[in-house]
Nucleic acid binder design. Sequence first.
DNA 1: ACAAAATTCAACCTAAAGTATGAATTAAAA
DNA 2: TTTTAATTCATACTTTAGGTTGAATTTTGT
Lengths: 156, 156
Amino acid sequence: MDSAIVKNKSLLLYAGSLAVLMLLLKWLEYRLVIINYSFEIYIGSIALIFTLLGIWLALKLAKPKKEIIIIEKTVEVSGDRPFEINSAAIETMGLSKRELEVLQLMSNGLSNIEIAERLFVSLSTVKTHSSNLFQKMDVKRRTQAIEKAKSLNIIE
Amino acid sequence: MDSAIVKNKSLLLYAGSLAVLMLLLKWLEYRLVIINYSFEIYIGSIALIFTLLGIWLALKLAKPKKEIIIIEKTVEVSGDRPFEINSAAIETMGLSKRELEVLQLMSNGLSNIEIAERLFVSLSTVKTHSSNLFQKMDVKRRTQAIEKAKSLNIIE
DNA sequence: ACAAAATTCAACCTAAAGTATGAATTAAAA
DNA sequence: TTTTAATTCATACTTTAGGTTGAATTTTGT
């Protein structure tokens, strides 16, 4: 839409300039005819004027061609991973909140008794949780559970 | 340097074109004078030719103005770390080759018996290695050893 | 309010992990 | 070559881990 307007503007300007030039030339012609002045100068001036007109026109029309496009392609820098828990894996395994806590503390290197003290529950409770945990995760040992949990990103 | 050559080329082309046009005009002039043809057409053709010449000249000279600069600013992504073992930590702890193997297999979730089978040694040997391992690493359990080893980058 | 799931705990048992001591063999360093 | 460190193994013991059953309580979703 803008280009159309610009083109129209250019055309109007061109038309106007042409009209003015024609008048000028007509005046020059009569003047030259009357006083019988140098014909070559007349032609030369016409050539010069129209050359300049052409240059002006071309510059006017070729103006929007000088485009400068700067594309910044920035990719995120992952210095340290933010760690995003794999909720889907937890869901599919059916791990409960408490079981996850036990799993996390196991991964931190705590024994069952230490976990019990940390969570203010008995050793029996921790054992129950861990046992259910292993069944749900389909592992035999806490070390396997830790390995699997870390590879599945369900603990930190 | 290139722009200078281009300018020279353009000027040479311009000079050549001018010469040819002058000859053409001279020929036209004589022809028109002789047969006394329409003067307006003569002037018009001159105007047209020189307008076109001006346009051509302008486009030729204004050519380097249509610059398209594309700047791609790409930042490196550190997807997965290559993992570099911390030999210094292993040295300071005084861990032997075999102890490291046991530690690695522990971290993979293997039991002592499984480790023994994997390394073709007895369960006693694995127990000895693991026990010495814990003393050297100053930990009480295999889970602690795994945690510490991973944080110190001495195993994968 | 009711049913299902989650959490808690106990008691008993087996398996595995971990400690301690002693010793034989092998590989590497002085 | 001799000494030291590493590797290997056994035996006995203690501690922890893990499994099973059963049950009480709480939370949660319908």
